[in-house]
Design a protein around this nucleic acid. Sequence first.
DNA 1: TATTGTTATACTCTATAACTATA
DNA 2: TATAGTTATAGAGTATAACAATA
Lengths: 193, 193
Amino acid sequence: MSPDSSDPAAGTSNVTRSAGTRRKPGDSLAPEPATGGSGTDGGFDPHVPDIDYGVLDSLIGYAIRRAQIRIYEDFVASLAQWQITPPRFAALVIISRNPKLKLTELAHILGIARSGAVLLVDALQEMNLVARRPAPGDRRAYSLVLTPAGKRTLAAAKQAVIAHDAHVASALTEQEQATLKSLLARLAPPRPA
Amino acid sequence: MSPDSSDPAAGTSNVTRSAGTRRKPGDSLAPEPATGGSGTDGGFDPHVPDIDYGVLDSLIGYAIRRAQIRIYEDFVASLAQWQITPPRFAALVIISRNPKLKLTELAHILGIARSGAVLLVDALQEMNLVARRPAPGDRRAYSLVLTPAGKRTLAAAKQAVIAHDAHVASALTEQEQATLKSLLARLAPPRPA
DNA sequence: TATTGTTATACTCTATAACTATA
DNA sequence: TATAGTTATAGAGTATAACAATA
């Protein structure tokens, strides 16, 4: 599930794994600031001049995809100082609002595999934002909680996210924003399977 | 760039690389149909009962993310028979509508690195949908074109995508769909940098 | 026997850096 | 010197499968 991924933040947060810090093939040479510079520079520009986008321009799915890409970029930029990505932010919020949450439940809520939740929580724990407490009544499980630092960071990040969201929607009136959310919520009804 | 990725389609399209078809650690044992089954089964359910989503529920960015996830799932399911993912579909459309397109231009349009465009075109070429023609006037470059099979497949896939998009937006009236696209287009104005 | 958390492994996607052949 | 395409490599994210401890 969770086709989210949406992670250009890749090279942004090296917190999770320390992996191999090897170098490149030639290495020990000039950094070379990337010649062409296609999609590496500023931000994703959804519309290149003189290009015919065909059906893409008439698809709601494509419009949402483009919006999501730009919003994601802005989000990551806004929270870069804390190394908090969208999934990490979502995890922090969910943990803070739902006491005694277990790892498996978190995975279910976020729509990821349990193994993925382990890595996510590992990262947040290494950042000293989350802690695993023994779950009362079940010695297999943990209760996830925010550390004091986690609470402080979440409070600050939350303000940044709210500001980010306001920026993203700044071209819309209050009512338009409400309309947008309402329309989005009515999209993609679950498949009959 | 291109935080898109959005690829739950991971295990869906093995077309790109034939990689190693190895097995698992223990292997040679019962398949075990995944015990818990968090996000592996049906579709991503954005709202788990009895869970407090806090600020997430008030963010436009989160609403878009959720919509995008569900739409992505439906898209992949709709085009699974051709093994065409969103980026592949976008590439086919762009190539078909813009003659003599070069690989670097495609990369720029899609917002990915040139190296990524190479792999993408490699995959489409292996699927016999796209071909590299010598670019007139520049022996370094190629002109990307659709093969006859590519044209046929794109025509069919396009119908499927249009149907998919209609399904996704089926709960909205024509006017609501227009409103939605209009509002989305006004989101996330480029950053001052 | 089922479930919780964990680990090992594999795979996809994407990025950076360097190389080649042209320009 | 710069550009088009390519390749090698690294890294993030996610998934599946298996395991130990506990239920």
